[in-house]
Design a protein around this nucleic acid. Sequence first.
DNA 1: TACCAGGTCCTCG
DNA 2: CGAGGACATGGT
Length: 241
Amino acid sequence: MSKLKEIYEGLFEHFGAQGWWPVTPIGGCKGTPAYAPVYGIGLKNEKQKLEIIFGAILTQNTSWKNVEKAIIELNKEDLIDVKKILKIDNNRLAELIKSSGYFNEKAKKLKNFCNFLNKKYNNNLKKLLEKNTKELREELLSVKGIGPETADSIILYAAEMPVFVIDAYTKRIMQRIGFKEQGYDGLQKLFMDNLNNNVKLFNEYHALLVKFGKNYCKKKPECSGCPVSHYCRKPDKKFGT
DNA sequence: TACCAGGTCCTCG
DNA sequence: CGAGGACATGGT
């Protein structure tokens, strides 16, 4: 078994299945907690896939907790809807997603995506998500505000096609463990060249890396109890970023 | 108080 | 290309 696969097994054994991406259940969240997402692959309807796309944009360099609040606000106003987002005033939209940070920029990004989908795909999300992986990625990257990580998150978690998402946690973890590959493309190639092209695997692996990065391999690492310490080069306290 | 969080764009060498 | 700044809230 490859080292990457072994690390995956170690993380999975420790944390269990993550079932990303979390989405508001059909019919909305009722009562408390205000945000009670459902998990599970292959169970998302169109609106939930749109919510994944909005969430992927809103979580750029921002904690998911802050994004949850924004998603609650959008759902309250029934704004997980391309036409409605296009209709709403920029400042009003920014106000609703305020908790997610960079709210003016992100309001524009949401509108950019909605405008793109409406104009180029006649507001038919299914049609966009059915394109092949390469074309879909190019299309998504053409939207101002969607970069490689956001595009790949959408491809993996909304279109459910096998592409490996690289984020800040992944970069930090891989560097610490001792892989020489770095940068978005290099790391993505490492994962995709050494693992089976499998949506479920890529979904869980990325989600597990995030969980691991939050709980152990933090900026300031907490190595006590680390589920994959056996695979780490352990440069004692000399961890870089 | 300062730092961090599931990035991206723009500008300059 | 790669570095550096702007964008901004909420939690520890």
